[in-house]
């Protein structure tokens, strides 16, 4: 706990002009859709491919020097879009989406490497957006492990309750599961509440 506080204090003292903002979360939570939304808003272009097939993002994607202007100032960040964290990868899941066996096995291998890479990056980010799907139960071990690791390292975070445009979305479940953290409900797909997220990043993560 004290280690975490010390790290937070050091972070404040060493406040950076450009923050390395990592996007973490389980598979298919909408991390790349969010990265695309931010880049579309501020760079005018999308950067990553999204699909309904799990583990579409299998390598860390870096988008450098994104400048976001909010009512409270300007923030500069390098976005690091991570592969989704998972505890299992079964190639047969990919075959259900129409991939042949060879392609599915290759994708599974790449997905396992992606998870390892994302975990390694925990030591290299300044702040994190933990992206969760508001239609799913938030109290999963993957979410708990991600948040526990960020807390232990003293890395500031915002939880993004994504997919609020979907009928089954219940962002309040995420707020109830992690009341000690700032939760911002958004739809990365439609852009709903995205300005609130920019304000929150400026307020809590810089």
């Amino acid at each position: 706990m004290f280690n975490g506080l010390l790290k937070k204090l050091l972070r404040v003292l060493k406040r950076k002009k450009v923050i390395k903002l990592g996007f973490y979360g389980p598979v298919n939570a909408g991390k790349t859709t969010l990265a695309n939304r931010i880049c579309l808003d501020w760079l005018g272009t999308e950067v990553g491919r999204v699909s309904e097939i799990p583990h579409e993002t299998r390598e860390v994607q870096k988008i450098e020097n994104v400048v976001v202007r909010t009512n409270n100032g300007t923030l500069r960040m390098n976005i690091i879009d991570m592969p989704g964290i998972a505890t299992q990868v079964d190639y047969r899941t990919f075959m259900e989406y129409g991939l042949d066996e060879e392609e599915a096995k290759r994708r599974a291998k790449e997905a396992t490497r992606g998870v390892i890479e994302a975990i390694k990056w925990l030591d290299n980010v300044d702040a994190v957006l933990v992206v969760m799907d508001s239609t799913q139960d938030p109290y999963t071990q993957v979410n708990v492990t991600i948040i526990g690791n960020l807390e232990a390292r003293g890395i500031p975070m915002i939880i993004v309750a994504n997919k609020i445009d979907l009928p089954g979305a219940r962002p309040e479940r995420i707020e109830n599961a992690f009341p000690q953290h700032v939760v911002v409900p958004i739809s990365a797909k439609t852009g709903e509440n995205i300005d609130k997220l920019y304000e929150a990043i400026n307020k809590y993560l810089t």
Partner: peptide, 15 residues
Amino acid sequence: PQEEAELIEATMREI
């Protein structure tokens, strides 16, 4: 939590 992250990493290597 750090050990859990290591467990996930080790699992990914063994898959």
